[in-house]
Nucleic acid binder design. Structure first.
Lengths: 147, 147
DNA sequence: CTTGAACCTACAGTCACTAGAGGTGTTATC
DNA sequence: GATAACACCTCTAGTGACTGTAGGTTCAAG
């Protein structure tokens, strides 16, 4: 019983996409913006990826899933590339992201409370009496900065 | 003592921006996409707004602050324009928005927990040993759908 | 050798603005 | 009435992180 040959390490873009849950176009996009290194090409100009690409892409996807913006991921990848560097910088990036997430949660909790109040007060009937429309028209939230 | 003349009701775009906390360009943008009606123009082609514009813009801003997307706001404005209609539709729009907000919060709570765990495990030192980098590289979150 | 899926590039579109260039209108002061 | 400062005008491009489409090429199986 023979193992599949080295071709096993040479993934097409579709195979890479399937393995990482990342769309094909998104992989090309990451290459275009320099987040993924340029892969080998076949004679017919098709991309072929190895395990290092697979790992790097998994790293990117997981970071994205945690809400890190691409620029933060670029920074983390740069740090990861030199294992002797101190990891203070990585710590800072992660903490910054945590603060972002926390402040978004706080903001959304406020919105949730106001939406609940609006909806509770609406008893159906005519738009003319609708508390939702009234609430939106009159009582402005003081601090915006959403997202 | 005389009241200021009718010009009092005729706001420049800058005055409207100041009163609503909305940027000048954003007001023009809302007009462009048909969310705000076209205002009067002076002979010199400058916009002049009345109180109805002020109210409509306040409605839009407050809705945006609550996270409603512009298309939902368009729908709410359409509803608000006929006071005899039933307000079931407005109720539905608001409830949809509430669900969105709640699921974003749930998602962000998961992220927060994972980020906290990552950061707690990082004891400083070399990148080679950094738990943050390791966590990002290895343990993929199953369900994405962020934002 | 043919078929059909997967691949390629290049460009437009998404959302909700924001920024800039280059020009015109309005108003307060002298 | 002149001038200066500032607000206004249109138009276009850029943001982030993709996604979708058009029109063409390559690959692998049968």
């Amino acid at each position: 019983m023979r193992l599949k040959p080295t071709i096993d390490n040479i993934l097409t873009i579709g195979a890479l996409a399937e393995r990482t849950g990342c769309k094909v176009q998104t992989i090309r996009y990451y290459e275009q913006i320099g987040l993924m290194p340029k892969p080998l090409r076949t004679e017919g100009n098709q991309r072929r990826f190895g395990l290092s690409h697979l790992e790097r892409l998994a790293f990117i996807r997981h970071s994205r899933d945690l809400g890190f913006p691409l620029e933060a991921i670029r920074e983390l990848l740069y740090l990861a590339d030199d294992p002797e560097r101190s990891c203070n910088a990585a710590d800072r990036v992660a903490k910054r992201q945590l603060h972002q997430v926390e402040s978004r949660i706080a903001r959304l909790e406020t919105l949730k409370a106001e939406l609940r109040r609006m909806i509770r007060q609406c008893r159906g009937g005519r738009i003319a009496d609708c508390r939702i429309i009234q609430a939106l028209a009159t009582h402005p939230t003081p601090d915006a900065e959403y997202h």
